[in-house]
Amino acid sequence: MREQNDYIVYVKDLTKVFGDFVAVDKINFRVEKGEIFGFLGANGAGKTTAIKMLTGLLAPTSGEAVVAGFDVRREPEKVKYNIGYMSQKFSLYDDLKVSENIRLYAGIYGLSRKEIKRKSKALLEELNMVALRDKLVGELPLGWKQKLAFAVAMIHEPAVVFLDEPTSGVDPITRRQFWEMIYKASVAGTTIFITTHYLDEAEYCTRVSIMVDGVIEALDTPKNLRLKYGADNMQEVFVLLARGEHTLQGKIKKEK
């Protein structure tokens, strides 16, 4: 049998209770190296609480989670060092230059001066942004900013990177370029843990979980989920599950 350390994210009966409200109710899943794991759910389903526990920001009430080899309850600081994180709401500092943002995050993740110099150069070249190194991040178009934020979140070569709605509001071409960066990272062995409201993006994931009212209601490859719920696409699967209509077989089909 495989050990929990074989997985990049190992979650067993993970639970969070606020007062008498069970925000996350005994969730279980495992994510393997290089997977693109889509973590979906309606607003208020418990996604954010779960992500906060997995990134070491919030202690679980019960259950366990091991992320990048570290226990989120016992070693939350080590978890933070060994993961990458990026969200649409918070990523880079607008009033710092491109190069300053890179230096700041590389420093926070404990890279040496020498490494920072080498990595900054490589990162800017890779993104075709060498000429923009002295520009304020606030002056960059959103799409560039998001690509830079993603690269910065991976500057310390984490085993897993958490992306919280990274493509919100970006144009359709940039959104796809962003996904190609995700694929590239995944092919290179980085595990991707991603949330999104664009349900076409759920199709790009290796596996997708859908949270409803604190529990994981479904977890499988997009193709299997489509087949299981008799849906044409992930949008239908999501609406079916999030509305709790999956128990009334084919209700959504009939309504069409």
Binding site: A42, H197, F238, V239, A242
Partner: peptide
């Protein structure tokens, strides 16, 4: 509909 889930969007 920005930032709200697919069900609320519908």
């Amino acid at each position: 509909t920005t930032g709200i889930d697919a069900v609320s969007r519908v």
